[in-house]
């Protein structure tokens, strides 16, 4: 199994380091061939407007949309969650539009309001360390969207099928459990594909 991290801009290297710690094969994804070779794709933190433009200019957005609709597991953190969303409050910026949520960018405020806190993450019994950096939250979630975490009553983690999104950055901590959860989604899809 190989997991990719979209490497156009942002903290993709932190995701790759986490995957390496879990002894999972991981590659940087910058083009179509790389995108089609992975069993799961992580959309990292970064600037969502920048990554959105680079996705659009390269045509990689169409490829990821197609792969996502076919069921490729996707995991977006912060900017990655924004890029996955169908709706971005007050913005017409480029996006993939695969996850039926409306997000609010910089919802917790500017950098001075950035914070870390222990938060629940529904698939896990114990809290995880949420690192929120100029972070978004989810305003509204569609019917098929499962809410995995709330902080201060705001939705900060969601899942729809094999698409996972968090407003926080598990890749900035030494705790690998959220990534392990995503890897399980990838394994489930891969074994489903090979037997079906």
């Amino acid at each position: 199994m190989v997991i990719g991290a979209l490497a156009l801009q942002g903290d993709y290297e932190k995701h790759l380091q986490t995957l390496h710690r879990l002894e999972v094969d991981a590659i940087e994804v910058r083009n179509e061939q790389q995108a089609r070779s992975v069993d799961g794709l992580i959309l990292p933190g970064g600037e969502s407007t920048t990554i959105g433009k680079l996705l659009n200019r390269s045509g990689l957005d169409e490829v990821i949309r197609e792969l996502g609709r076919e069921g490729l597991p996707l995991f977006g953190t912060c900017a990655g969650l924004i890029l996955l969303a169908t709706d971005i409050e007050g913005s017409d910026q480029h996006r993939l539009g695969l996850l039926e949520v409306e997000v609010r960018r910089n919802a917790f405020g500017r950098q001075i309001a950035s914070f870390e806190a222990d938060i629940p993450f529904q698939p896990l019994p114990d809290p995880v360390k949420g690192v929120f950096i100029r972070a978004p939250w989810v305003n509204k979630a569609g019917k098929g969207v499962q809410i995995l975490s709330r902080y201060d009553e705001h939705i900060v983690a969601v899942q729809q099928g094999a698409i996972l999104g968090t407003a926080f950055h598990p890749e900035l901590t030494s705790d690998t459990r959220v990534h392990e959860y995503f890897i399980q989604l990838c394994q489930k899809r891969k074994s489903g594909n090979s037997t079906g």
Partner: peptide, 27 residues
Amino acid sequence: QASQETYQAQKATWRVKVGLAEMLKGG
């Protein structure tokens, strides 16, 4: 940086400061 494992929200930690710099990488 590695030892801040507490149970309430903390702002302006080293991890949060360096975290924004991490987000600006490759840009």
